[in-house]
Amino acid sequence: MHGVVLAVLLQATMAGGKHDYNAAFKSADESGKPLLILVGTNWCPGCVTMKRSVMPSLLRKGKLSEVAYAEVDADSQSGLAGKLMQGGSIPQLILYRKTSTGWRRKLLIGAQSEMTVTTLVDRAVEQQAALQAESAEQSVVTASHVEAAE
């Protein structure tokens, strides 16, 4: 019996690792991609809809390819969930976007449609691209200013 329980726990742990927060955060930090996090539970109907229907559909369609995506279980990862969440309502879809002054946060509470999530992601990706273009432009201006001074 213990072997069956251990096998089930191991499978659940491995499945949870598919959209691991630490890996997604590292990817976002290194790549500059926005970080999208779904915080929920396995007993909440809205969370289950997001985890089993909305988000997998968006992943299959490639709509989340420009973000680092993670899922956080508010029950088994309560410490992390508490740091990420605002208030106690679930599910919460949190998007962080890296800026020149730090990370910016957007929050959607409750079950969301594919269209709403797509709009959130598209806007963040556009803003991120604009920031990176502006940063690259400033680098060119700085480099040409240094060349002119020499």
Rank of each mutant, 00 (worst) to 15 (best):
T41F: 11
L64F: 09
T13S: 08
A81G: 05
R60I: 13
M85E: 01
I94E: 02
D29C: 06
A148C: 04
M1I: 12
K33R: 04
L36K: 03
S57Y: 01
S113Q: 00
R97N: 05
E134H: 07
A111H: 01
K51Y: 01
V125T: 11
Q138E: 12
T13Y: 03
D122F: 07
Q86T: 15
M14W: 09
A149F: 09
K51A: 15
R52V: 13
I90S: 06
I90Q: 01
L80K: 03
G88I: 07
E137T: 12
V67R: 00
E30L: 14
L35F: 06
A130F: 04
T49G: 14
L108M: 14
K18Y: 09
E71M: 10
S31I: 08
G110T: 08
L38V: 08
T49C: 09
Q127R: 05
L107P: 04
E114D: 15
E150K: 13
T118A: 15
Q132K: 10
Q11C: 15
M14T: 08
S139N: 08
Q128H: 06
A130Q: 06
V67M: 03
A129K: 05
Q127T: 04
L38E: 12
Q127W: 05
Q92A: 12
C44H: 02
K83P: 03
L80G: 08
I37L: 10
L84E: 00
L6N: 10
F25C: 12
Y69Q: 07
T119P: 07
L93A: 04
T49Q: 14
V67P: 04
T142Q: 13
S135D: 08
G17W: 07
Q86R: 14
V4N: 02
E147L: 14
S113I: 11
G16N: 13
G3Y: 09
C44E: 06
V117S: 05
G32L: 08
V72L: 04
Q138L: 15
E66A: 13
P91K: 01
T101F: 10
S139D: 09
N22V: 09
G110P: 11
G82N: 08
L36N: 05
A68T: 05
L36C: 11
S100Q: 06
E134Y: 02
H2W: 02
C44V: 06
L80Q: 01
V5M: 09
G16L: 14
I109N: 00
V146C: 03
K18S: 14
